[in-house]
Design a binder for these strands. Sequence first.
DNA 1: CTTGACTCCGTAGTCGGGTACGGAGTTTAC
DNA 2: GTAAACTCCGTACCCGACTACGGAGTCAAG
Lengths: 140, 140
Amino acid sequence: MKALTIGALARAAGVSVETIRYYQRRKLLRDDGPRQGAFRVYESADLIRLRFIRRAQTLGFSLDEIAELLRLDEIDDRVEARAMAQARLEEVERRIGQLNEIRDALASLVSCCEHTESPAPCPILHTLLDDGFLSRPPQR
Amino acid sequence: MKALTIGALARAAGVSVETIRYYQRRKLLRDDGPRQGAFRVYESADLIRLRFIRRAQTLGFSLDEIAELLRLDEIDDRVEARAMAQARLEEVERRIGQLNEIRDALASLVSCCEHTESPAPCPILHTLLDDGFLSRPPQR
DNA sequence: CTTGACTCCGTAGTCGGGTACGGAGTTTAC
DNA sequence: GTAAACTCCGTACCCGACTACGGAGTCAAG
């Protein structure tokens, strides 16, 4: 249980001090912890919490969802936590499905372009003109 | 070649008038077209261009990239257009790979939670505490 | 006891792709 | 001829997750 300054905590978690402050404002981390003199002191529990936040982000949870996950952890509500993970899983699967369609569309555009002679109506740009293309869901 | 008002064009493309104006500001659509009286008139070429933009967005191109694609179309540079589609394809494939990892991680979290008895250390929330998790790339 | 690094806190700006608002002018239908 | 609907244009605001900035206070090393 060694004490950390906010800067040391940031370095340990691989985030910036600004990010930690931002999480405090968002109530993901407490900003009313103990102080030594004028400066707040953090400890390993804070680091664990911070790492949890970053990993949950990697899984695609928003900060609001992560706040909820942390709350569920505190009240030990596993049913609800599992439901959130399940919902996220389904969302990811939907997204994978969309991206597969997009991949196929792009792949056929590319190969089609490769096999078309120069004076022909370039596929890439105008296959996109066809109707009944993919329905809309991009978001990168 | 029937003339359209901006409102009719918007309805035909399924976007809002505001969106069309926004694309004009971004130089994706021209805003110096002919007018009839005080109002600009649009025609099928504009509708085609607008649909192209929306379809390219569906494939995940940004508006800047779409501007570039439109430029390449004008100068008929198929090599570069194909390169952009190829790059986009690779990006999509990377993303699919990431999402597959995320899906697996979520799935194992969920099933693990389902098969753990209540007093045990709930998996969902603290598997996330393990080291060497996924490396960072979320973006929903 | 000074210097430099750090901390605290508040506010503002960034990105991308729009949406919203508001006032003034125009056009169309009745 | 007037009212409703539309257009034009500019500016401001939205989302999420930060990042940047600035001034003041504080702490640790030399």
